[in-house]
Amino acid sequence: MDIAEGFRFHGDKIVNRWVEYTLSTYTSSGFFLKERDKFANPVGGNFREGLQKLFLLLSKDADPQEFTAPLEQIISIRAVQEFTPGQAVAPLNAVKHIVREAFAADKERQHLVGELYDFEFSVDLAVIAAFDIYMQCRERLYQVRIAEIKSGNHILTDSKCPSSMLDGDNKKNIKTVNGI
Protein backbone atom coordinates (compact mmCIF):
# COMPACT_ATOMS: atom_id res chain seq x y z
CA MET A 1 0.00 0.00 0.00
CA ASP A 2 2.15 2.85 -1.16
CA ILE A 3 1.07 6.43 -1.27
CA ALA A 4 0.43 6.43 -5.02
CA GLU A 5 -2.04 3.62 -4.54
CA GLY A 6 -3.61 5.58 -1.71
CA PHE A 7 -4.15 8.57 -3.94
CA ARG A 8 -5.60 6.41 -6.67
CA PHE A 9 -7.91 4.63 -4.28
CA HIS A 10 -9.26 7.75 -2.60
CA GLY A 11 -8.77 10.08 -5.57
CA ASP A 12 -12.39 10.45 -6.63
CA LYS A 13 -13.61 10.94 -3.10
CA ILE A 14 -10.96 13.52 -2.36
CA VAL A 15 -11.62 15.48 -5.54
CA ASN A 16 -15.35 15.40 -4.88
CA ARG A 17 -14.90 16.80 -1.42
CA TRP A 18 -12.47 19.35 -2.68
CA VAL A 19 -14.87 20.54 -5.36
CA GLU A 20 -17.69 20.59 -2.86
CA TYR A 21 -15.60 22.56 -0.42
CA THR A 22 -14.51 25.09 -3.03
CA LEU A 23 -18.01 25.58 -4.34
CA SER A 24 -19.49 25.89 -0.90
CA THR A 25 -18.06 29.38 -0.89
CA TYR A 26 -20.71 30.36 -3.41
CA THR A 27 -24.25 31.42 -2.78
CA SER A 28 -25.77 28.92 -5.14
CA SER A 29 -23.45 26.08 -4.47
CA GLY A 30 -26.35 23.66 -4.77
CA PHE A 31 -26.69 24.42 -8.42
CA PHE A 32 -22.99 24.71 -9.10
CA LEU A 33 -22.47 21.29 -7.57
CA LYS A 34 -25.24 19.42 -9.25
CA GLU A 35 -25.06 20.50 -12.83
CA ARG A 36 -22.04 18.83 -14.38
CA ASP A 37 -22.32 20.18 -17.88
CA LYS A 38 -19.40 22.50 -18.42
CA PHE A 39 -21.41 24.74 -20.70
CA ALA A 40 -24.57 24.83 -18.67
CA ASN A 41 -22.61 25.46 -15.51
CA PRO A 42 -19.29 27.11 -16.29
CA VAL A 43 -18.31 27.79 -12.69
CA GLY A 44 -18.92 24.31 -11.35
CA GLY A 45 -17.77 22.59 -14.52
CA ASN A 46 -14.47 24.40 -14.70
CA PHE A 47 -13.76 23.91 -11.02
CA ARG A 48 -14.38 20.21 -11.26
CA GLU A 49 -12.20 19.87 -14.33
CA GLY A 50 -9.46 22.08 -12.94
CA LEU A 51 -9.31 20.49 -9.51
CA GLN A 52 -9.37 17.01 -10.98
CA LYS A 53 -6.37 17.76 -13.18
CA LEU A 54 -4.59 19.56 -10.40
CA PHE A 55 -5.06 16.71 -7.97
CA LEU A 56 -3.52 14.26 -10.42
CA LEU A 57 -0.52 16.52 -10.82
CA LEU A 58 -0.12 17.09 -7.09
CA SER A 59 -0.37 13.43 -6.26
CA LYS A 60 2.32 12.42 -8.71
CA ASP A 61 4.81 15.07 -7.71
CA ALA A 62 4.61 16.76 -11.10
CA ASP A 63 6.65 19.73 -12.24
CA PRO A 64 5.05 22.85 -10.71
CA GLN A 65 5.11 24.37 -14.20
CA GLU A 66 2.30 22.06 -15.09
CA PHE A 67 0.10 23.47 -12.35
CA THR A 68 -0.47 26.62 -14.36
CA ALA A 69 -3.16 25.39 -16.73
CA PRO A 70 -5.57 23.92 -14.19
CA LEU A 71 -4.89 26.73 -11.73
CA GLU A 72 -5.63 29.30 -14.40
CA GLN A 73 -8.92 27.54 -15.06
CA ILE A 74 -9.97 28.05 -11.44
CA ILE A 75 -8.28 31.24 -10.38
CA SER A 76 -9.28 33.26 -13.45
CA ILE A 77 -12.87 32.75 -12.35
CA ARG A 78 -12.27 33.54 -8.71
CA ALA A 79 -10.29 36.63 -9.62
CA VAL A 80 -13.43 38.36 -10.86
CA GLN A 81 -15.78 37.15 -8.16
CA GLU A 82 -15.58 39.57 -5.27
CA PHE A 83 -13.11 37.48 -3.30
CA THR A 84 -10.13 38.96 -1.56
CA PRO A 85 -6.86 37.51 -2.85
CA GLY A 86 -6.65 35.29 0.24
CA GLN A 87 -10.18 34.03 -0.18
CA ALA A 88 -9.58 33.39 -3.84
CA VAL A 89 -6.73 30.95 -3.29
CA ALA A 90 -7.61 29.55 0.14
CA PRO A 91 -9.65 26.56 -1.05
CA LEU A 92 -6.54 25.13 -2.69
CA ASN A 93 -5.04 24.57 0.72
CA ALA A 94 -8.04 22.59 1.79
CA VAL A 95 -6.90 19.56 -0.14
CA LYS A 96 -4.19 18.95 2.46
CA HIS A 97 -6.77 18.51 5.15
CA ILE A 98 -9.10 16.55 2.95
CA VAL A 99 -6.37 14.07 2.05
CA ARG A 100 -5.33 13.67 5.68
CA GLU A 101 -8.89 13.05 6.69
CA ALA A 102 -9.42 10.53 3.96
CA PHE A 103 -6.30 8.55 4.87
CA ALA A 104 -6.87 8.81 8.60
CA ALA A 105 -10.34 7.37 8.26
CA ASP A 106 -9.06 4.39 6.29
CA LYS A 107 -7.58 1.76 8.61
CA GLU A 108 -5.48 0.12 5.92
CA ARG A 109 -3.96 3.38 4.82
CA GLN A 110 -3.62 5.26 8.10
CA HIS A 111 0.15 4.97 7.94
CA LEU A 112 0.22 7.04 4.77
CA VAL A 113 -0.59 10.16 6.75
CA GLY A 114 3.03 10.28 7.76
CA GLU A 115 4.20 10.18 4.17
CA LEU A 116 2.41 13.26 2.94
CA TYR A 117 5.36 15.65 3.09
CA ASP A 118 5.97 15.71 -0.66
CA PHE A 119 2.32 16.05 -1.49
CA GLU A 120 1.83 18.92 0.91
CA PHE A 121 4.91 20.60 -0.38
CA SER A 122 3.43 20.40 -3.86
CA VAL A 123 0.22 21.95 -2.57
CA ASP A 124 2.23 24.81 -1.09
CA LEU A 125 3.89 25.37 -4.44
CA ALA A 126 0.50 25.34 -6.10
CA VAL A 127 -0.82 27.94 -3.68
CA ILE A 128 2.13 30.18 -4.40
CA ALA A 129 1.63 29.70 -8.12
CA ALA A 130 -2.04 30.49 -7.62
CA PHE A 131 -1.13 33.85 -6.08
CA ASP A 132 0.93 34.64 -9.16
CA ILE A 133 -1.93 33.67 -11.40
CA TYR A 134 -4.39 35.68 -9.34
CA MET A 135 -2.21 38.73 -9.81
CA GLN A 136 -1.80 38.06 -13.52
CA CYS A 137 -5.56 37.85 -13.84
CA ARG A 138 -6.08 41.11 -12.03
CA GLU A 139 -3.44 42.79 -14.14
CA ARG A 140 -5.01 41.41 -17.27
CA LEU A 141 -8.31 42.82 -16.13
CA TYR A 142 -6.82 46.29 -15.81
CA GLN A 143 -5.21 45.86 -19.22
CA VAL A 144 -8.65 45.08 -20.58
CA ARG A 145 -9.93 48.30 -19.06
CA ILE A 146 -7.14 50.31 -20.60
CA ALA A 147 -7.57 48.63 -23.97
CA GLU A 148 -11.24 49.50 -23.89
CA ILE A 149 -10.45 53.13 -23.28
CA LYS A 150 -7.83 53.20 -26.01
CA SER A 151 -10.05 51.47 -28.53
CA GLY A 152 -12.42 54.40 -28.38
CA ASN A 153 -15.38 52.53 -27.01
CA HIS A 154 -14.98 54.43 -23.82
CA ILE A 155 -15.97 57.65 -25.48
CA LEU A 156 -19.52 56.51 -25.11
CA THR A 157 -19.70 57.38 -21.50
CA ASP A 158 -17.33 60.05 -20.49
CA SER A 159 -16.10 62.08 -23.34
CA LYS A 160 -13.77 64.17 -21.25
CA CYS A 161 -11.28 61.52 -20.31
CA PRO A 162 -10.53 59.73 -23.57
CA SER A 163 -10.60 62.95 -25.50
CA SER A 164 -7.11 63.61 -24.32
CA MET A 165 -6.00 60.55 -26.23
CA LEU A 166 -7.39 61.71 -29.53
CA ASP A 167 -5.85 63.91 -32.11
CA GLY A 168 -6.45 67.63 -32.06
CA ASP A 169 -9.47 67.87 -34.26
CA ASN A 170 -11.50 65.30 -32.44
CA LYS A 171 -10.53 66.70 -29.11
CA LYS A 172 -12.16 69.97 -29.90
CA ASN A 173 -15.40 68.42 -31.01
CA ILE A 174 -15.74 66.22 -28.05
CA LYS A 175 -15.34 69.13 -25.73
CA THR A 176 -18.14 70.84 -27.52
CA VAL A 177 -20.32 67.85 -26.95
CA ASN A 178 -19.60 67.99 -23.28
CA GLY A 179 -20.55 71.57 -23.05
CA ILE A 180 -24.19 70.96 -23.91
Binding site: K34, R36, D37, K38, F39, A40, R48
Partner: peptide
Protein backbone atom coordinates in the same frame (compact mmCIF):
# COMPACT_ATOMS: atom_id res chain seq x y z
CA UNK B 1 -31.90 19.87 -23.13
CA UNK B 2 -28.27 19.89 -22.31
CA UNK B 3 -25.34 19.15 -24.52
CA UNK B 4 -24.05 15.64 -24.05
CA UNK B 5 -20.50 16.84 -23.76
CA UNK B 6 -19.60 15.99 -20.22
CA UNK B 7 -16.47 15.94 -18.22
CA UNK B 8 -17.82 14.04 -15.30
CA UNK B 9 -18.77 10.47 -16.05
CA UNK B 10 -22.05 10.65 -14.20
CA UNK B 11 -25.35 12.51 -14.43
CA UNK B 12 -26.21 13.30 -17.99
CA UNK B 13 -28.91 15.35 -19.51
CA UNK B 14 -32.00 13.44 -18.48
CA UNK B 15 -32.14 15.38 -15.25
Amino acid sequence: TKSELHDGPKITYES
